[in-house]
Amino acid sequence: MEKINTTVLSNTSKRDLDHSNVHGRVILITLYGMVLVGGTTGAVMMSRLMFKRSTRSMIATIVINIIVLHSILLVSLPFRLSYYVLVTWELGSFTCRVVSGIIYGHMYFTFVFYVAIVILRLLIYFKKLQMQQLKKYHGVVLSIIIWIVGSLIFLPIFFLQYGVHPRYSEQQQCFEFYKDLNRTEFIIMNYSIIAVIMTMVVTLFLIQMVVIVQLMKALWPDMWAHQEYRAQIKSFFFLLVILVCFIPHHVFRVYFIQNYTDRKDSELVFYNEICIALTTICCLDMLCFVSGVIH
């Protein structure tokens, strides 16, 4: 009788797991599909808009970098969608690592460029920089520095540490590199990144709120007529994108590291995948600009 009950419970658990997997894949397919369509539309429309205006400002140069990052991520999304639809990976372990690594590279590089825009506008507001001093070549130099420094940090981790364990090449599954989180060096690296990002975001958010409140008091009720106020609102929008898209992933990552066990039926894996998918929603930022959501 006990053996029969165990078998029944096992079968029930398996059916629940299968249902959960299907439900999770539907959510992921929906999220990535929405980002692919909306992000591509926004990137194309924003690119055409900037080409027509021939903007030469430093901020515009940084925005171009963000569009490039979004485009790289959008190219990789069909591979993710095909995997969640077919539930098998036929393109080899290295391709899986590349597609998986792109989503993290996109997140961190985009975060840096977002922060660069916010800091530049805050420096201009506090009279530490003059807008007239910021030329296009300053943006180009800053962009090159970010790409070089970021690549020197990211690429060695990707090629030497990320998903290199032989067990990953022996299966037709992909995007399961979270199993490496039980390694001490990865735990330390993740906690360090999370601490830096959280500290930076909280600090910038508080400063940005103070600036916006000061401008509202000084310019009320015609604050929308002033370019300075609109510029700070755009910076605030980028901070909101970080809070909505990037912070949930990093907050959950702390919980994931502390509670993950190497079990295939762990619900934490599903929630982790959802948080990773949420980071791609930032690709809709350009669509918000061109559609008039953010003026």
Rank of each mutant, 00 (worst) to 15 (best):
Met1Gly: 11
Ile4Tyr: 09
Asn5Gly: 11
Asn5Tyr: 11
Thr6Met: 11
Thr7Phe: 13
Asp16Arg: 09
Asp18Val: 12
Asn21Met: 15
Asn21Thr: 15
Leu28Gly: 04
Tyr32Asn: 09
Thr41Leu: 15
Gly42Ser: 04
Met45Cys: 13
Ser47Phe: 13
Arg48Ile: 15
Arg48Met: 14
Lys52Leu: 10
Thr55Leu: 12
Arg56Thr: 14
Arg56Val: 10
Ile62Cys: 06
Val63Met: 15
Ile67Pro: 04
Leu73Ile: 02
Leu74Arg: 07
Val75Ala: 12
Ser76Asp: 01
Leu77Phe: 06
Pro78Phe: 01
Phe79Tyr: 12
Arg80Thr: 09
Ser82Trp: 13
Tyr83Asp: 08
Tyr84Asn: 08
Tyr84Asp: 10
Val85Asp: 12
Leu86Val: 10
Val87Cys: 13
Glu90Trp: 00
Gly92Val: 05
Val98Gly: 01
Tyr104Arg: 08
Gly105Pro: 03
Phe111Arg: 03
Leu120Ile: 14
Arg121Glu: 15
Phe126Cys: 05
Leu129Arg: 07
Gln130Lys: 14
Met131Glu: 15
Lys135Ile: 06
Ser143Val: 00
Ile144Ser: 07
Ile145Lys: 03
Ile145His: 07
Gly150Asp: 02
Ser151Asp: 05
Leu152Thr: 03
Ile153Arg: 07
Leu160Ile: 07
Gln172Pro: 05
Glu176Ala: 01
Phe177Cys: 00
Tyr178Cys: 02
Thr184Val: 00
Ala195Phe: 04
Ile197Phe: 09
Val202Gln: 06
Leu204Lys: 03
Gln208His: 03
Val211His: 07
Val213Asn: 13
Gln214Pro: 01
Trp220Gln: 11
Met223Phe: 15
Trp224Ser: 05
Glu228Ala: 09
Arg230Phe: 03
Leu239Tyr: 03
Phe246Thr: 02
Pro248Ser: 07
His249Asp: 09
Arg253Gln: 12
Ile257Ala: 01
Gln258Gly: 06
Asp262Tyr: 05
Lys264Asp: 13
Lys264Asn: 13
Asp265Thr: 12
Tyr271Trp: 15
Ile274Glu: 07
Leu278Asn: 01
Thr279Arg: 00
Leu287Ser: 07
Cys288Lys: 01
Phe289His: 10
Phe289Leu: 15
Val290Cys: 06
